[in-house]
Amino acid sequence: MIYLPVGIRSIAVNFPSIIRTNDYWRENYPDVVATAEQKSLSKVFSPADATPSNKFEQEMTPYLKDPFRGTIERRILSADESSLTLEYGAAKEAIAAAQMSPKDIDLMIVASLWPENILPGNAAFLASQLGLYGAAWNLDSTCSNAMVALQNATALVRTGEYRNVLVVISCTYSRFTDENDTLSWFFGDGAGAFVVAPLRSNQGILSTKIINTSATCGTFYNELTTNAEGKPRMLIRAAKNTNRVLSETAVDYLRECCLGAMIAAGVTLDEIKFFAFNTPTAWYSRLCTEALGIEPERTINLYPHYANIGPMLPIANLYHGVQLGKIHENDLVLVYTIGSVSNAAATVMRWGNVALGSAPVTLANLTVRLPNLVLT
């Protein structure tokens, strides 16, 4: 099937001002660090049996000696930051990079993990801040938010319903974890945005393969509790069997989505120039390269410096892939995401002349170190 050339026109990222390194916990929570192997993060990411039983656990093994499981630093919201402030910064940059104004955007799709209110989501509030006049929708597919939103935006532009669609994604895990819970070491915050619009001939989205991840239901869940002041608070929890479920399904989801998307696009692994795998753990990119049989130099691993930023991972990977010169115009790019209790998704695209938003101040040092992150 021949599709109209539609894809990403611009992309921007926005991260919180606080960079929290492992030393923060060593200095403030030494007892928690000392007993980390009895805490939640270790229970989630340890072999289900005495020896590794699958590829996921084999790649995880070198990190078992590290209580932080490969995380070096993560970006965390300050007291005056929120999902909305992060989304606004990313959205404004993406519109400007595309050389558009808010009046050029006739649809905005917003996926906030999580929004500022239980209901409604952030879309209308963000539209007001940006001065948008078109439609503004909320969407949810957890860590596959970006790819599900991209598929929807692309389809709507191809049908002619809309011409320029702004997709805005945010992740604010730190609001839903306690500092004295080792699971907080695993999470970070951030936001990203991209404009989907018509591109030059033969560029843009070629195919998408999405499958549900119902086998992961019950792994991560939310629990309503109260804080020290007695006020209600939602926290992220992990079930006892989370590692077993994630490790046993990881490779199958990856292969089904990636190979399915490539077959639909009519391309081969050798033709893909860059792979943007979402990296929810330090070893996930290596798991992907080994499972697909590709060279690690064809991807990057951002996890050590961002931790798990959920649905923001593919956007950050694409942004830095361009920044590092790993993605050029007309390159074939494959993006893969895995969302627990939602969907796994792979998209094949031929990269256009994609403009980047400016790098936030907190990315300055990271950009210098990023070449080291090619090693998985």
Rank of each mutant, 00 (worst) to 15 (best):
L370H: 03
R20A: 00
N138I: 08
D181T: 07
V322H: 06
D49V: 15
Y88D: 07
G89F: 02
F45M: 11
A364E: 10
T208V: 14
A265G: 12
A261R: 00
S174M: 02
D252N: 07
V341M: 08
T362I: 02
Y306H: 10
G160I: 15
D270P: 05
P115K: 03
F277T: 08
L119G: 07
W283R: 03
L41R: 04
G7I: 04
Q38N: 13
D270E: 14
A96I: 04
M1I: 10
L375T: 12
G266K: 10
M312R: 00
T226N: 11
N317A: 10
K39Q: 13
T289Q: 03
P296S: 11
A291S: 12
F176S: 00
G121A: 08
S247W: 02
T289N: 05
T281D: 05
G293L: 06
A146Y: 06
H320S: 07
A261L: 06
A264F: 05
V251Y: 01
P314T: 03
N353H: 10
R369E: 13
L375H: 14
K209P: 01
R350F: 09
M100D: 08
E87G: 15
A215M: 12
V354H: 00
R26N: 15
L156F: 15
S46V: 13
T337E: 06
T362P: 01
S358K: 11
P304K: 03
Q151K: 12
N212C: 09
A98K: 02
N243T: 06
D104Y: 10
A149M: 11
K209M: 05
N28Q: 13
M262H: 10
L287S: 07
E73G: 01
S247N: 02
L287M: 13
A239K: 02
N202A: 13
N308P: 07
Q129E: 15
A153T: 10
L107A: 09
F68W: 14
T51C: 09
Y306D: 01
G310I: 04
I263A: 12
S40I: 09
F274E: 00
L139H: 11
G230Y: 04
G218T: 11
D23R: 11
T159S: 15
K240I: 09
G121Q: 07
S144V: 08
V374T: 10
S83L: 04
Y284T: 15
E161Q: 15
N278C: 15
S141A: 13
F45I: 09
K65L: 14
R9T: 12
S174R: 00
E27T: 14
K55A: 14
S144K: 11
Y336H: 13
D80R: 08
P360G: 00
S82I: 02
I263E: 11
L107F: 09
P102L: 09
A127F: 13
A265E: 10
E297W: 13
E73T: 04
E271R: 13
V6C: 03
H305F: 04
V335H: 03
L259V: 01
G339F: 07
P47F: 14
S112Q: 14
V368I: 14
A98R: 02
K103S: 15
P115V: 04
D31I: 08
R26M: 14
